[in-house]
């Protein structure tokens, strides 16, 4: 099945769900639960990721009669997921910022106090260095495979802004990678 056929099929499932066919909605859940979980995890949701996946499907269910197949279904699904994520950030923003501050402080202390603890610089650390806007854009394009126009639609921003966000995010993450040797002078080798 081609990608286009898959998306037509998904819209058809949603239409059937709107007519009361729960089994069709179940198919959508089965197909998208993994993708959406990874979206939220990489966007930074961590322990709330599964809850947010659920919330996204609940919103999809609420909108099932009104959704119009004007784009690929995956774009629509990610639009809802993005809204869920933004709502979560608004609701828990203060707590999240506190957690990040604690984590940053702890990491710095670890690096100062231990010559053996390797500073973990991986994908998550790179993404953590980005603002929520930049991170969300990177996740949608790099991980979720949305095109720039699709990401623009999901995020509600111009396509050019998607491009510039990706560019600036890449710059920032590259700078972090470039700084890494200096940030980990005592990491044991071999």
């Amino acid at each position: 099945m081609s990608s286009d056929e898959a998306h037509l099929e998904e819209w058809a499932w949603l239409a059937r769900a709107a007519d009361g066919d729960d089994a069709s909605f179940h198919l959508l859940v089965e197909r998208y639960q993994g993708r959406l979980l990874n979206y939220f995890l990489r966007a930074g949701a961590k322990e709330h990721a599964e809850d947010l996946v659920q919330e996204t499907f609940i919103r999809l269910y609420r909108h099932r009669s009104r959704a119009k197949p004007l784009a690929r279904f995956t774009t629509y699904a990610h639009t809802l997921a993005h809204h869920v994520w933004i709502d979560h950030l608004r609701k828990h923003g203060r707590a999240l910022r506190t957690q990040e501050a604690v984590r940053a402080h702890t990491d710095t202390e670890d690096q100062r106090s231990s010559r053996t603890a390797p500073a973990r610089l991986d994908a998550e650390r790179l993404l953590d260095a980005l603002s929520p806007d930049l991170r969300d854009t990177v996740v949608l394009v790099v991980y979720q495979g949305l095109t720039h126009p699709e990401a623009a639609e999901a995020l509600g921003i111009p396509e050019g802004t998607v491009k510039s966000r990706i560019f600036h995010a890449m710059q920032r993450m590259r700078a972090l990678l470039d700084e890494q040797p200096h940030a980990r002078p005592h990491e044991p080798h071999g």
Binding site: V29, L41, A123, L126
Partner: peptide, 18 residues
């Protein structure tokens, strides 16, 4: 290198949320 690092983050297995 950035892209390579990002893509080293493996997909989490799909949950069973149905």
């Amino acid at each position: 290198p950035v892209l390579e690092t990002l893509r080293a983050w493996p997909d989490a297995p799909a949950p069973a949320l149905a």
